[in-house]
Write a protein that binds this DNA or RNA. Sequence first.
DNA 1: TACCCGAGTTGCACGATGAGACTGAACGCC
DNA 2: GGCGTTCAGTCTCATCGTGCAACTCGGGTA
Lengths: 162, 162
Amino acid sequence: MLGREYATQNCSIARTLEIVGERWTLLVLRECFLGTRRFDDFQKQLGIARNVLQARLERLVDEGVLERRRYQERPPRYEYRLTEAGRDLLPVLIALMGWGDRHRAPAGAPTLILHEGCGGTVDAALACEQCGATGLRGAQVVVVAGPGAVPGQRVSATTAPA
Amino acid sequence: MLGREYATQNCSIARTLEIVGERWTLLVLRECFLGTRRFDDFQKQLGIARNVLQARLERLVDEGVLERRRYQERPPRYEYRLTEAGRDLLPVLIALMGWGDRHRAPAGAPTLILHEGCGGTVDAALACEQCGATGLRGAQVVVVAGPGAVPGQRVSATTAPA
DNA sequence: TACCCGAGTTGCACGATGAGACTGAACGCC
DNA sequence: GGCGTTCAGTCTCATCGTGCAACTCGGGTA
């Protein structure tokens, strides 16, 4: 049994979840985006078991999402920082936050993500890279096999349920 | 111990993860978007243990992400469909897929999400709801306390690591 | 020297998951 | 009527993941 893997799925969602899908991992990453660097600070902010935190940080470093940087020589002390690949997970976190804000925040959004350029609210939206249309919904997109598809690749004619 | 909850976190990401963060849940939802409806089909597509699948489907129904619809009277048979709230999780799935495509797909993307209107590729991007800017990165956004914030709410002056 | 801090490491109990068998209510066929 | 098949679960048990709490080690400081 491979507790975090989805070996039978030829699917990028599954590949991503193999790295960030374990309990606590996405919240560890949220902390990274919020500026947390050190082991004890992660532990305090999250209230997470130290062995679980250590395992999560180590995994994220191994997967190239975080890197360890020495901030002190004696004793050697390290902090954890997002790599470029790690920073590229921001849309995932903001999409999750967006859904929670809309559907599970009776008191309103605890935090807002604002555009530094104009002060507007930022969310993760489906956008077309060709024509620039944003805010697309399921009924406006189709799933097709891509370059990494295998015979019998799981696709559907449409993502919109009837 | 509450295995899926993050009770100490006043954070919409945590609220969302309490519903979709367990192993297999997001892949169950992927299947819903691809058109899967019935218990056995989910089980076959995912290769998931039947008791785990049942628990996941039941949870998603309880949380209002899926609904059961009877498709047959004798014996009573139900299928599972996304609710509006469930469909609103599409950006989460596509953001996860996007990251996997960019960072974990040596053979290229197994599937592509295309804009039905023009045929362009669709991805989940950070967009400003006020000025319409898209493709924003961490350095271009700030986190501030929102209406649901509590005293001492966890925010940071910027989401861009130094 | 004693104490504190930071970054882990360790041991153990309990819950989550996986594998596989089982159940019940049909339906169709011989 | 009996049998086999299908579908949607239910159940049992072994293994692994997580949580709790204590411990370890290598410093620095009073």
